[in-house]
């Protein structure tokens, strides 16, 4: 069962670029509207100024949200996927022991799975998808940079 595909990194990159392009477009519309209101405002300019302030505050708040939440998460997800697929893959037989706490790595939430690999316990992170694992069973797993990418067959004999 493939949990993360390499194409998802390209999708994340496209999403990141699309988000930024959308932000630039919104910024251009805001600047145009604000300048239009300024240049068209008559001597009694207070209503025009009030509308510009409301627009400006809304755009400012959106900018804060965009750069500290929306775009930030898109960039972090892309970086994580880039890191995952540029790391050397490890294919190991591992016995599933338990599921640990959900951790947040640079803003990205990941579940923690505990495996026994080669006689030692090791934490592996699950970025997305549902890992239908049974405690005590042995699986062939593929790990990239500590992140579970693929779960293979349950039976060791069948794999080799």
């Amino acid at each position: 069962m493939i949990l993360i595909r390499e194409e998802e990194r390209d999708i994340a990159e496209r999403k990141k670029k699309k988000l930024f392009a959308l932000y630039v477009a919104i910024a251009c519309v805001f600047v145009a509207a604000a300048l239009l209101l300024l240049f068209l405002s008559p001597d009694g300019y207070k209503p025009y100024m009030a509308v510009t302030i409301v627009l400006s505050a809304a755009f400012g708040c959106y900018s804060v949200f965009f750069f500290s939440v929306q775009y930030d998460l898109a960039v972090k997800r892309y970086r994580l996927l880039e890191k995952v697929f540029s790391a050397l893959p490890e294919r190991e037989f591992a016995v599933f022991l338990s599921e640990g706490e959900t951790i947040t790595y640079e803003g990205i939430e990941m579940r923690t799975l505990l495996f026994e690999i080669g006689g030692t316990e090791r934490e592996v992170h699950l970025l997305q998808g549902v890992a239908d694992l049974t405690v005590g069973n042995k699986y062939l797993i593929e790990i990239h940079a500590g992140v579970l990418v693929e779960i293979g067959d349950e039976n060791e004999e069948k794999v080799f």
Binding site: A34, Y48, M49, I53, A57, G60, S68
Partner: peptide, 25 residues
């Protein structure tokens, strides 16, 4: 953690546009 940024942005919007409109008119 970010509420201060939202408040600063709102206050800056108010101050900046009052100044710009005042200057323009």
């Amino acid at each position: 953690s970010d509420w201060v940024k939202y408040v600063v942005v709102i206050l800056l919007s108010i101050g900046l546009w009052i100044w710009i409109f005042g200057l323009y008119h």
